[in-house]
């Protein structure tokens, strides 16, 4: 089974069992957002510990892209920058 997730309104295909990070990565998206110093957010530890691949799951909140499995129609966007 396959499907699509939405990354900033862009359709990204996935295969069953893939994490958000795996599907995004395969679509050439490694830059998942911007950290405090302007550095890229990207996968680092791969097991949900380092918090470097944090993305926003629409309607749910921040989550680690390396841990969440894709589901059809899931809308994902970069983490917002803090207001200060």
């Amino acid at each position: 089974m396959t499907g699509h997730i939405l990354w900033n309104d862009r359709d990204v295909p996935y295969e069953q069992g893939e994490t958000l990070a795996q599907a995004l990565n395969r679509a050439g998206i490694t830059h998942l957002g911007t950290g405090l110093a302007g550095q890229s957010r990207s996968v680092f530890c791969g097991i949900g510990q380092c918090q470097n691949c944090l993305v926003i799951l629409e309607g749910k909140g921040p989550c680690e892209a390396c841990r969440v499995l894709c589901a059809d129609g899931l809308a994902v966007s970069p983490v917002g920058t803090p207001h200060d």
Binding site: G17, E18, T19, Q22, T30, H31, G35, Q39, S40, S42, V43, F44, C45, G46, I47, N52, C66
Partner: peptide
């Protein structure tokens, strides 16, 4: 070490096994 494309070895291994 914070650049995209730089990961832990463990991350590459888990990725290889699960994908």
């Amino acid at each position: 070490w914070t650049l995209p494309g730089v990961t832990s070895v463990g991350a590459l291994q888990v990725d290889l096994k699960t994908a």
